Amino acid sequence: MPFVVPRAPDLPPATWTAYGLTTLTVVPLVLRRRAPVLVLLTVLTAGALYNVAVDGPGQPLPYTGLVAFYTVAELSSPPKRLGVTVLTAVAVLVSVGLGRQDLRELFFSLFVFAAAYAFGRLTVTRQAYLRAVEDRARQLELTHRIEAEQAVARERSRIAREMHDILSHAVSLMIVQAEAGPVAVRTAPERAEAAFDAISETGRDAMVQLRRMLGLLREPEAAPDTPRAPQPGLAALPGLVERVRDSGLAVSYRATGVPRPPGPAVEATVYRIVQEALTNVVRHAGADTVHVLLDHGTETLALTVTDDGRGPGAHRGPGPGLGLVGIRERAAAHGGTATTGPGPDRLGFRVRVAIPRTAPETGGGNERVAGEAR
Rank of each mutant, 00 (worst) to 15 (best):
R310L: 14
E299D: 15
S200A: 15
Q127C: 01
Y129M: 04
P60E: 07
A370P: 04
A18L: 06
R204I: 08
Y117M: 08
V112K: 10
A114M: 05
R126T: 10
A48C: 04
A285P: 07
S252M: 03
V351Q: 01
T23W: 13
A89D: 00
T71Q: 13
G203Y: 06
P36N: 03
F108H: 15
E193G: 10
F349V: 01
R357S: 08
H315C: 00
A370W: 03
G341S: 09
T279W: 00
G319W: 00
T71N: 05
W16H: 05
E329N: 13
N51I: 04
V94E: 06
G239K: 10
P344D: 14
F69S: 06
A198H: 05
A160Q: 13
Y117C: 10
T15I: 03
P312G: 04
L294C: 05
L322V: 10
A53P: 00
E149L: 13
R357C: 06
V258A: 15
Y271V: 12
P342S: 15
P12K: 01
P259G: 06
D246Y: 07
L278R: 00
Q275Y: 00
F107A: 12
L324R: 01
V282M: 06
L21H: 04
R212D: 13
K80E: 14
E372G: 11
R81D: 07
P262N: 08
R283D: 02
P189F: 13
G343A: 09
R145V: 05
A277N: 05
T269W: 00
R211S: 12
S200W: 11
R154I: 13
I166P: 02
E147P: 00
P79N: 09
D55R: 13
L87N: 00
R212W: 12
I199H: 03
G20I: 04
I199E: 02
H284Q: 00
G97W: 13
F108A: 05
P13N: 09
F108K: 12
D345N: 12
P36W: 09
A333S: 14
Q139F: 02
T187K: 11
E361N: 09
G348L: 09
L29M: 02
T306E: 12
A48S: 03
V183C: 01
V282R: 10
A118S: 11
D225P: 02
G311N: 03
S200H: 11
V183G: 12
L82A: 15
I175S: 11
G309N: 08
A118D: 11
V52Q: 01
E162G: 03
P12R: 07
G248L: 08
L294W: 03
G233L: 05
A229G: 05
D135K: 08
T300V: 10
L11H: 02
L210F: 08
T300E: 15
R260D: 15
A250P: 00
A235T: 14
R330M: 15
D205V: 08
